[in-house]
């Protein structure tokens, strides 16, 4: 048993972390749940508008979220980002990791190259990508031009949703690669080499080595990356700012790429009466949605993951 006089010391050591967590995580968390049920919240008086205290509603703030003009667009964009970028980036990262793990020369150098995006600011990368996809002097159009493709407006004024989304997805996939490769590589390096020797002796074709040995043995890492990536994609926002700016869309088509988190910030920015409650409700909806998604993920991985 731990002696009780040591408890005080323990709490003392924990205090800085607990205070910061309380201030910036737990308080806002509970506050959001609280605000979501306050009627006509006035952010200046910090009470229900025209009252001294609070009046409560059950679904009003939530229904304002669902009725917001951008709600449909936000759901669509978020869903597309989640369902396309996550599988695409996981598969790409897996292939690159396996390739990196099997080469001997330049391995360290290439690992650094692939890891760089992780330590680079995502807004800066977004701006670089906006330039790469520039319709007049972007690299992508130049490259496509070699094959006789007419310049496409990817992100500039008048860009179509499809073109913009393609650019955004490529950027999102690329931006997420670094961390995934890092995790997969360390996973690959911890797999006992004897499994591969055994496979070699048993004349296992390459594809089968990958699908029957590497992937199952890496499955805990894949499950971890899948869950965190889905959560990350559900929260996509800064990537869109980086690419399209604060208007969340190409010029003349603002909010074309709004996401669920975009919806929250939009409401916060308006600052009108009740806007904070709408933002809080939207955040709760997003939370419930990611929570459900994670449960499904965990349920699937329980059947497929070998620990």
């Amino acid at each position: 048993m731990i002696e009780s006089k040591n408890n005080l010391k323990a709490w003392l050591y924990l205090a800085p972390a607990l205070i910061l967590l309380g201030l910036f995580t737990f308080y806002p968390l509970f506050n959001a749940f609280f605000l979501a049920f306050v009627k006509d919240f006035n952010s200046i008086t910090r009470s229900t508008h025209g009252m001294d205290g609070y009046a409560f509603v059950l679904f009003d703030n939530f229904s304002r979220v669902f009725k917001s003009p951008d709600f449909g667009q936000a759901v669509k964009n978020t869903a597309v980002i989640m369902l396309v970028s996550v599988p695409a980036s996981i598969i790409t990262a897996l292939v690159i990791s396996v390739a990196l793990n099997s080469i001997k020369r330049f391995q360290g150098f290439l690992q650094t190259v692939f890891f760089l995006p992780y330590v680079t600011n995502s807004i800066a990368i977004g701006m670089t990508f906006a330039f790469i996809f520039h319709s007049d002097y972007g690299l992508v159009n130049m490259f496509l031009g070699w094959f006789g493709v007419n310049p496409i407006t990817w992100v500039g004024p008048g860009a179509s949703w499809e073109a913009g989304m393609t650019a955004l997805l490529i950027y999102t996939v690329w931006g997420g690669l670094a961390f995934k490769i890092l995790v997969f590589l360390s996973g690959l390096q911890s797999i006992d080499k004897q499994y591969y020797d055994a496979a070699k002796i048993d004349a296992t074709p390459r594809g089968r080595v990958f699908s029957k040995i590497t992937v199952p043995l890496l499955s805990p890492m894949i499950a971890y990356i899948t869950i965190t990536s889905f959560i990350g994609a559900a929260k996509a926002y800064s990537t869109i700012i980086g690419m399209f700016g604060a208007s969340l869309g190409p010029e003349g088509n603002a909010n074309a790429f709004i996401t669920f988190v975009g919806l929250i910030y939009d409401a916060l920015e308006k600052g009108t009466i009740g806007a904070y409650s709408v933002a809080a409700s939207a955040a709760i909806v997003l939370f419930l949605f990611t929570f459900m998604f994670t449960l499904i993920n965990m349920w699937v991985s329980k059947k497929r993951v070998h620990y």
Partner: peptide
Amino acid sequence: PELRGIGLVFQNYALYPH
């Protein structure tokens, strides 16, 4: 190795755990 027609038992067996 795959064309030599050998069976090999490793020191720690190398059975596929999954």
